Computed example of a mutant assay.
Amino acid sequence: MSRHALDVALELEALGEGRFGGRTTPEYWNMGGPFGGVTAALLLRAVLAHPARRGRPVAQTVNFCAAIGEGGFVIEVRLARDGRSTQHWQVEMSQEGRGTVTTGSVVTGAERQTWAHASAAPPPADDPSSVPAMPTAGRNAWLSQYEFRVMEGRSTFDLEPPGEIAPARSKLWVRDKPERALDYEALAGLADTFIVRILLVRGYFIPVATVSLTTYFLAGEADLARQGARPLLAVADARAFRGGFADQSGELWADDGTLLAVSHQVTWYRE
């Protein structure tokens, strides 16, 4: 049986303490480099592979400094602070001839039995099987590695300008394609599957990129195991587009109503 494309993309070779080597894969290619979600998943994988790591991921920030070229890369992981409850990691990806292309940080922490309360609730949603899958053929390769079932918001951005301004909010079901059991690396990738909002709001393509992405992991190991390979309920929205930059936020819910992760990012766009 062939390996899942995500597992191939996340393959890292230990090069020494805190250093890992890997290669880009065509399956997750975006406009000018790899899909940002797989880059986030790679940085997280490197931290999780470090022998000094304790606990599960709590938070991750990824700063996309420059376009990542095809081929090899090196990820360096450094434990910046080892506390009683949390560990703080610094991560950097570099390529020969390009220097630093991505920087980031990861916070890990041990799960504990504590008081719990959820003030947020998932939005109502149709059964995934009743929502048609969005066509991805002929688009950037990474889109074909996911199954999108859109219930609210635009699902395309290939309209001829001038497009009619649409709401920034989207609601959809999403999962890896083919199906893959959920883990933290996959969750990090899924947190970046929300199309850059300005493309959907305006309805046509302009140059865009994510500048910085932060994901907060609220799911414990048991939550991920319970979800398995079933689709996640995803909600995304934006607040403002101004001066070439825009925000956007996302939520990823298990199908039992558990909030698994929230993400916030700032994106860049050019007229």
Score class of each variant (00 low, 15 high):
48 L>I: 14
49 A>F: 08
50 H>L: 09
50 H>I: 05
51 P>S: 06
51 P>Q: 05
51 P>N: 02
52 A>D: 09
52 A>E: 12
54 R>E: 15
54 R>V: 15
56 R>Q: 10
56 R>M: 04
57 P>E: 01
57 P>V: 03
58 V>P: 00
58 V>D: 00
58 V>Q: 07
59 A>S: 06
59 A>C: 09
60 Q>T: 04
60 Q>R: 01
60 Q>K: 01
61 T>R: 04
61 T>W: 02
62 V>N: 01
63 N>A: 14
63 N>D: 13
63 N>Q: 07
64 F>L: 02
66 A>S: 00
66 A>Y: 00
67 A>F: 05
67 A>G: 13
68 I>H: 02
68 I>R: 01
69 G>E: 15
69 G>L: 08
69 G>R: 11
70 E>C: 09
71 G>M: 07
72 G>C: 08
72 G>L: 06
72 G>I: 05
73 F>Q: 00
73 F>V: 03
73 F>T: 01
73 F>G: 00
75 I>L: 13
76 E>K: 05
76 E>H: 04
76 E>G: 09
78 R>S: 13
78 R>W: 03
78 R>N: 09
78 R>K: 08
79 L>Q: 00
79 L>T: 00
80 A>G: 08
82 D>A: 11
83 G>A: 10
84 R>Q: 00
85 S>V: 07
85 S>G: 07
85 S>E: 07
86 T>H: 15
86 T>L: 15
87 Q>M: 12
87 Q>Y: 09
88 H>G: 10
89 W>C: 00
90 Q>D: 11
90 Q>M: 12
90 Q>K: 15
91 V>Q: 03
93 M>G: 13
93 M>S: 10
93 M>H: 05
93 M>R: 10
94 S>P: 10
94 S>F: 02
94 S>G: 13
95 Q>Y: 11
96 E>C: 12
96 E>M: 11
96 E>G: 14
96 E>H: 15
96 E>I: 14
96 E>R: 12
97 G>T: 12
97 G>H: 09
98 R>P: 04
98 R>K: 13
98 R>V: 11
98 R>C: 01
100 T>E: 06
101 V>K: 06
101 V>L: 09
102 T>K: 03
103 T>P: 10
103 T>H: 05
104 G>S: 12
104 G>T: 12
104 G>E: 09
105 S>M: 15
106 V>L: 11
107 V>P: 05
107 V>H: 01
108 T>V: 07
109 G>M: 10
111 E>L: 02
111 E>N: 02
111 E>M: 00
112 R>F: 14
112 R>L: 14
113 Q>E: 14
113 Q>C: 05
113 Q>L: 14
113 Q>D: 15
114 T>P: 01
117 H>D: 05
117 H>W: 14
117 H>C: 07
118 A>L: 03
118 A>M: 03
118 A>F: 07
119 S>D: 13
119 S>K: 10
119 S>W: 13
120 A>T: 12
121 A>Y: 08
121 A>L: 14
122 P>M: 01
125 A>H: 08
125 A>K: 00
126 D>K: 06
126 D>R: 05
126 D>Q: 07
127 D>K: 06
129 S>G: 13
131 V>K: 02
132 P>V: 13
133 A>K: 14
134 M>Q: 12
136 T>H: 13
137 A>E: 15
138 G>I: 12
138 G>K: 09
139 R>A: 04
139 R>V: 04
140 N>D: 08
140 N>V: 14
